[in-house]
């Protein structure tokens, strides 16, 4: 059953920039190998955590919105648990209102980007 999902994960801030990119790419490949179709990907960069996780107060947030079969999610979560660079993750099943919301959010972001370019 193909559903749309959204996963957010936090990477430890100790890593260098390219190690973070590599970690994100690693999960992208896990998804694309499993036959997922990645709809959107966002990288919020270094953000302050509301409370320390594993004694760290900041973390690299990144979001991947994708459509895939439901069996792949278990594999993805095992991958998350196995990788010690990830300190927190959450995968979320998007219902139709959530998909519409994500769509609107993406358009709003694109408009913002466009207005910046016009100036």
């Amino acid at each position: 059953m193909i559903n749309s999902y959204e996963t957010v994960f936090i990477i430890t801030p100790v890593l260098s920039e390219d190690q973070v990119k590599e970690a994100v790419k690693k999960f992208r490949t896990v998804l694309t190998d499993g036959g997922a179709e990645i709809v959107n990907e966002e990288d919020w960069g270094l953000k302050k955590l509301a409370y320390p996780i594993k004694h760290k107060t900041t973390g690299f947030y990144s979001l991947i919105e994708f459509k895939c079969d439901s069996q792949l999610i278990k594999k993805l979560e095992i991958e998350y648990k196995r990788d010690e660079k990830i300190i927190r993750f959450l995968t979320f099943h998007l219902d139709k209102f959530a998909v519409a919301y994500a769509e609107r959010r993406r358009n709003k972001k694109n408009q913002k980007v466009e207005t910046k370019e016009e100036k």
């Binding site: 936090i10 509301a50 959450l90």
Partner: peptide
């Protein structure tokens, strides 16, 4: 509760 899990919101402050 999901926001708290992902440290967007604190559990108690």
């Amino acid at each position: 509760k999901r926001a708290r899990h992902l440290a967007f919101l604190p559990y108690v402050t």
